[in-house]
Design a protein around this nucleic acid. Structure first.
Lengths: 247, 247
DNA sequence: CGGTCTCTTGACCTCTGTCAAGTAGAGTGG
DNA sequence: CCACTCTACTTGACAGAGGTCAAGAGACCG
């Protein structure tokens, strides 16, 4: 446990909250002052497991992570994607057991806050409590859009939609959009995100490239023609609530 | 606006909250005393529309409702199913615009509470505030299970899973399980729930009947062999958090 | 008892999955 | 800098779950 040094992972988290909820400066200071430890994990490691009862609130300060569930037969589905600045488990403050697995997608740096400290923060500061709820609600809204994606869009639109979403979400924390960097997932992970198979993802990426929506070099995928991508995706960002909190 | 008469829709709502969160008796009384009006809607009517800014918190006291989104091409996906006792829009207390449509599945009776009254209730009573968050989190957990359902299960399992879920959720508010009554959806609505077509739903219902998991007479569908249904569904109720709130 | 909405059914089609073999990056060690 | 290895990506042939179309049969309602 080290006290805040001023410029660390909690800053990204604060920026994320501020992107949808205004906070008074003393609340902001309280967040920065949160006692915490730092942990690094390599890609594919588990952060939390289904059935656990967690005592900590991990915050993702660099890298990507995802929530994942599987069927008895081994079918694996990624049910949420977390980006830098996202808190990974507000849920454990309110509900006893964790209902999904949380895994590192890439190598990640986590800030670990004790659940008790976080509960105190939220209990003492209504504006932060509200920001936390807004955060939870936005994640739920994204989940609903994903349901539409899985239920009613074909492979091409699904993939295009995911790439659009990731792009705009990354813009929100000023981590920069997705157009400037490679898509962080392997084709197998894309398959798990979109309810498809790796083979079909491969065909679909190729088709996106053929249409100019995406550019590839080596294993990397990068965004190409974004308006085209949005069109293919039937994408509108209202579900991300980038306007967000009620005043 | 009539004051509570003691036995009305707010009782079902209270029962629903108590099913996952204990509440002190004065909080319970405060919920029962909430000023409200009552509204009846026929099947298929809209309750809230995407893009609206709502000023009310409708509570479903009888009948069924659902949240729904569509693609530009007209593909329709039901993204949440609400049962008697469910509050339909906590979200508008925290976020400006509604990101989906809310529609009556069957004829419904609603209790309408002004958003301001509800905000005051939640602001004054921490145990209720917590119960509301737990409710939001459980809906989110159900959404994640639905993502797994759409992404990784075939038509037969998907349908079986939905029926199981509905059964156990109905048990929670003591409205009785689903085994005692007909499934409230048409085959077209089942298709919209499961990301399938009505024709394929028809084939799938027939197959469930052949296996004894379901019984039909006329247009009605009723649960048959529930253990068999659970097996086909790969169903486990942990995601419903029926143990629920942290003590 | 006529009208309308659901449900059924069959024939055919297509998107995505499966299998299996081959290729090429990216990292490692010499 | 090169060989080696592991993993991820590719590709083609084939299979199958689920979609589409269209017509007909049952329910339920006034």
């Amino acid at each position: 446990m080290n006290a805040s040094t001023g410029h660390d992972g909690l800053d990204v988290f604060l920026r994320k909250l501020l992107s949808h909820s205004p906070l008074p400066t003393d609340d902001q200071a309280a967040i920065r002052a949160l006692p915490h430890s730092v942990r690094h994990l390599d890609a594919n490691n588990y952060i939390l497991r289904e059935g656990d009862q967690s005592g900590v609130c991990p915050i993702l300060c660099s890298g990507f992570a995802y929530r994942q569930k599987s069927t008895r037969e081994g079918g694996r589905q990624i049910v949420a994607l977390k980006i830098p600045g996202d808190a990974l488990d507000f849920q454990s403050m309110y509900v006893r057991t964790i209902d999904h697995n949380l895994q590192a997608l890439t190598a990640v740096d986590l800030v670990i806050v004790a659940l008790g400290d976080f509960e105190k923060l939220v209990g003492d500061r209504p504006a932060i409590a509200r920001a936390v709820i807004v955060d939870i609600l936005i994640e739920a809204s994204i989940g609903r859009e994903w349901l539409l994606n899985l239920g009613r869009r074909n492979a091409l639109s699904r993939l295009a939609h995911l790439l659009c979403e990731l792009h705009y979400r990354l813009l929100d924390t000023r981590s920069g959009g997705l157009d400037a960097r490679d898509v962080p997932m392997t084709q197998e992970q894309l398959a798990d995100l979109l309810g498809l198979t790796p083979v079909h993802i491969n065909r679909t990426v190729k088709e996106l490239e053929r249409r100019g929506a995406v550019v590839r070099q080596g294993r990397g995928i990068r965004l190409g023609d974004i308006p085209q991508l949005r069109l293919l995706a039937d994408f509108s960002d209202t579900y991300l609530h980038r306007d967000a909190g009620v005043p």
